[in-house]
Computed example of a mutant assay.
Amino acid sequence: MGLITIEMFATLDLVGQAPGGPEEDPAGFPFGGWQAPLLDEVAGAQIGAAYEGTDALLLGRRTYDIFAAYWPHQDEGEDGDIARLFNAVPKYVASRGTPALSWSGSTQLGPDLAGAVREIRDRHENVKVVGSLNLVQTLLREKLYDRLDLWLHPVVLGVGKKVFDDGAVPTNVRLLAPPQAGPAGTVFLRYGIADGLPVTGDMSRPDRGLADEG
């Protein structure tokens, strides 16, 4: 069984909507492109490394349309390596409509999204979910992911679709590597889903071990 990793860019208040540009999601969201001024070489290298070994992409319809209009034309230049990877691997698209899917290697998923994602996980070793907030909510709800790569940016927007929204359910995660910060203040966090459910405690009670030592 392969790994499904969600790649997500978020603000400090966990807004993940339209980081790349105003055209990504223009309806009623005034901060499209909020990530661009905060992207530095460190974050760029982290993003490139995160995609190494990817053998399939899992995308929502809006993200797919943006990618399909951009990546097939970027085989050269600084984006060439990622472009060649994205163009070569299978692309699976979650959509309730009937998209044209002109990007080579693209397949629309059926109405049983959870079942289709489980089949993709069995078929591939390293599946990446990029953006696609509506799709991410389903994956969070069904716990159909293994890792979450989260780039937390030093900006607060106060409005916009959030990473953990209607799809969030009680889940334990563990930090897989030390946090890494770039010069622009963006912090890269890599989490893995963990067993069990969150537990609670009482901060007003003294630690028994420390109390016994006194």
Score class of each variant (00 low, 15 high):
L157W: 04
L157F: 03
L157Q: 02
G158F: 12
G158S: 11
G158T: 13
G158L: 11
V159I: 14
V159G: 07
V159D: 09
G160H: 04
G160P: 05
K161T: 14
K161D: 06
K161N: 09
K161P: 09
K161C: 05
K161L: 14
K162D: 00
K162E: 01
K162N: 00
K162A: 04
K162G: 00
K162P: 00
K162Y: 00
V163K: 03
V163P: 01
V163M: 12
F164V: 00
F164S: 01
D165A: 15
D165W: 01
D165H: 02
D165E: 14
D165Q: 06
D165P: 00
D165G: 04
D165K: 01
D166R: 14
D166K: 15
G167D: 04
G167Y: 00
A168C: 05
A168K: 13
V169K: 06
V169H: 08
V169I: 11
P170G: 06
P170S: 10
P170I: 09
T171D: 05
T171M: 13
T171R: 07
N172V: 15
N172S: 10
N172M: 13
N172T: 11
V173Y: 14
V173G: 06
R174Y: 05
R174K: 14
L175P: 02
L175G: 02
L175K: 01
L176D: 13
L176W: 04
L176C: 07
L176A: 15
L176S: 13
A177G: 00
A177F: 01
A177C: 00
A177E: 14
A177Q: 14
P178K: 15
P178W: 04
P179M: 09
P179Q: 08
P179S: 12
Q180N: 06
Q180R: 15
Q180K: 14
Q180T: 15
A181G: 08
A181L: 06
A181C: 14
A181D: 08
G182F: 11
G182N: 11
P183A: 13
P183H: 05
P183L: 10
P183K: 10
A184G: 10
A184H: 12
A184M: 08
A184Q: 12
A184C: 10
A184D: 07
G185A: 03
G185I: 02
G185F: 00
T186M: 05
T186H: 03
T186P: 04
T186I: 15
T186G: 05
T186C: 10
T186Q: 06
V187F: 03
V187G: 11
V187R: 04
V187W: 03
V187E: 04
F188G: 02
F188V: 08
L189M: 11
L189K: 11
L189V: 10
R190D: 02
Y191M: 14
Y191P: 05
G192L: 09
G192H: 07
G192C: 10
G192K: 07
I193Q: 12
I193K: 09
I193N: 05
I193Y: 01
A194Q: 09
D195W: 01
D195R: 14
D195P: 03
D195Q: 15
D195I: 04
D195L: 07
G196F: 01
G196W: 01
G196A: 10
L197N: 06
L197C: 07
L197V: 11
L197M: 08
L197Q: 12
P198C: 03
P198S: 02
P198E: 02
P198H: 02
V199Q: 11
V199K: 09
V199F: 04
T200H: 10
T200I: 07
T200N: 06
T200D: 06
